[in-house]
């Protein structure tokens, strides 16, 4: 029964949502769907609480056993406790909600300040490090070793240049330079390239790369993923795939 009941819940709720999608005017189905949606939101809120509880429990266990790196678990618990304490200083009144004030200071605001002054810079800094690793990888790994790599490299450079104003500025500066070279600029004009590219030739080329070959590939990927998702959903709804129970059962 431990397995059957969740399967029955998944089957009924999943097919109710599907039925309502195709027959939205059926009142019984629509009402049941609304009920399931309300339940799902309540369940998600409890799942979040459960997640917090599990996080605290597993970290406290590591601290109690003084496992390697337990100091980091202690930092997590301390950060959680401090942030939670300040952010929870919030009271509801009939006219709305407000921060709790202690000795003229809105202590709940401290939770917001912790987010703004500690979490935001830390999170931004970690993400900003990616730029440095990209630069390093660009130098070491992005090599024109074969024809495929040359194509990839050329497309990447055009798209990177096309994404910033420098691309068009550089190309237009180059055009004005070659206008002094015999045949250079006349060839550009003779081929009517200025009429095709307009004032922003690199952006134009970058857009062409992104909106023709790349878009076609992206559509194919999306389509394949969507078909996969449909079949996966059917497998879950009919109980063929039970991996979401955990324990690797399928």
């Amino acid at each position: 029964m431990r397995r059957q009941i969740p399967l029955i819940i998944v089957f009924i709720s999943g097919f109710t949502m599907m039925l309502d999608y195709f027959f939205p005017s059926l009142p019984v189905v629509h009402g049941t769907r609304e009920l399931f949606l309300n339940w799902s939101r309540v369940a998600f809120s409890f799942a979040m609480l459960l997640g917090v509880f599990t996080l605290l429990l597993s970290n406290l266990k590591k601290i109690a056993l003084q496992q390697s790196g337990w100091i980091f678990n202690a930092v997590l618990i301390l950060s959680f406790a401090v942030t939670f304490f300040f952010a929870a200083q919030y009271k509801m009144t009939p006219s709305g909600s407000t921060w709790i004030t202690i000795k003229g200071t809105q202590v709940g605001q401290t939770g917001y300040q912790i987010f703004q002054t500690v979490y935001t810079p830390l999170s931004s800094s970690i993400f900003a490090l990616v730029a440095f690793f990209i630069a390093s990888a660009a130098f070491r790994a992005f090599r024109a070793k074969n024809i495929e790599a040359v194509l990839l490299l050329s497309a990447a450079i055009v798209v990177m240049l096309g994404s910033i104003p420098f691309g068009d500025l550089l190309f237009n500066a180059f055009l004005s330079k070659i206008s002094s070279i015999p045949f250079g600029f006349s060839l550009y004009n003779a081929l009517h390239l200025s009429q095709i590219f307009g004032e922003h030739p690199v952006s134009w080329l970058s857009n062409q790369i992104q909106q023709i070959p790349m878009l076609a590939a992206q559509r194919a990927i999306n389509f394949g993923a969507a078909i996969g998702m449909v079949f996966m959903s059917i497998k879950i709804l009919t109980g063929i795939d039970r991996s979401y129970f955990g324990g690797g059962e399928s």
Binding site: A138, A144, L153
Partner: peptide, 24 residues
């Protein structure tokens, strides 16, 4: 922020070209 972003992009392109020049 556009100028800083553009400069960073140009720096990455420069590193790609530099890396390939050394490779060849």
């Amino acid at each position: 922020g556009l100028f800083a972003l553009s400069v960073a992009n140009m720096a990455v392109i420069a590193f790609i070209i530099f890396g390939n020049a050394i490779y060849f």
